[in-house]
Computed example of a mutant assay.
Amino acid sequence: MTTKAGMQDAVRVTARLLDAIAADETLCETAAAAARACVAALRAGRKLLICGNGGSAADAQHWAGELVSRFHYDRPGLPAIALTTDSSILTAIGNDYGYDRVFARQVEALGVAGDVLLAISTSGNSPNVIAALQAARERGLGTIGFTGAAGGRMAALCDHCIRIPSDSTPRIQEGHEVLGHAICAMIEAELFPRHAP
């Protein structure tokens, strides 16, 4: 329904989701714990690796950009790498090892103990994201998952699993974007304290 009322109804659906997220104390504490884990890794001279497919790949790139460049204000760049951006690496791994290995192989190549992998999958069951989490755990990386209410297979592989209270892919993605932004803001403020607008 392409009317003003239809648009208002669509926005209200998202507003209700945001209210549910804000009211969920367990979810907010999990997200805060994830931010603390990222801060600890960065303070120790480690880096963040971020992966996901489709819209989640866009989130990975977005969050890496917020950290490497800036979020609220100017400060030193932070080491964050989206594993979704190098077409030569992605296609080489896909060709040589299969699409399920496109992120795991990069974790094996780039990840060291103490780094943190942020893995995004709305279903919690994306095979290449699961493989990346498994590779991360084998190498001593911290693991943070972003998924939906059910958690999926990734829940058991994450030190912190951020489950958006929805089974709808668009709503889960909207929740990821809000909490991903909040985590970027918390990392920036903790590492480089300053009043943010």
Rank of each mutant, 00 (worst) to 15 (best):
T2V: 02
T2L: 06
R12I: 03
V13C: 06
T14Q: 14
T14I: 07
A15M: 06
D19C: 05
I21M: 14
L27N: 09
L27H: 13
A32H: 14
A32W: 10
A40Q: 14
R43S: 04
I50R: 05
C51S: 08
N53E: 09
G54E: 09
G54W: 07
G55P: 04
G55S: 13
D59V: 07
D59S: 11
A64W: 12
G65S: 10
E66G: 00
E66A: 03
L67S: 02
F71S: 01
Y73W: 11
R75S: 02
P76W: 15
G77W: 00
L78V: 14
P79V: 10
A80N: 06
I81Y: 14
T85K: 08
S87I: 15
I89Y: 05
I89A: 15
N95M: 04
D96C: 01
G98Y: 12
G98H: 13
R101E: 15
V102H: 10
V102M: 14
F103V: 02
A104G: 12
L110S: 07
L110Y: 14
V112G: 00
V112C: 09
L117S: 08
L117K: 07
T122M: 04
G124P: 01
S126V: 01
S126F: 05
P127W: 08
N128K: 10
L133C: 11
L133P: 00
Q134K: 14
A136M: 06
R139A: 02
R139W: 06
L141T: 10
F146M: 13
G152D: 07
M154Y: 11
A155T: 13
L157T: 07
C158L: 04
C161M: 03
S168G: 05
R171S: 11
G175C: 06
G175E: 11
V178K: 07
V178T: 13
I183Q: 10
C184P: 00
A189C: 04
F192S: 00
P193G: 09
H195K: 14
A196P: 00
A196I: 07
P197L: 10
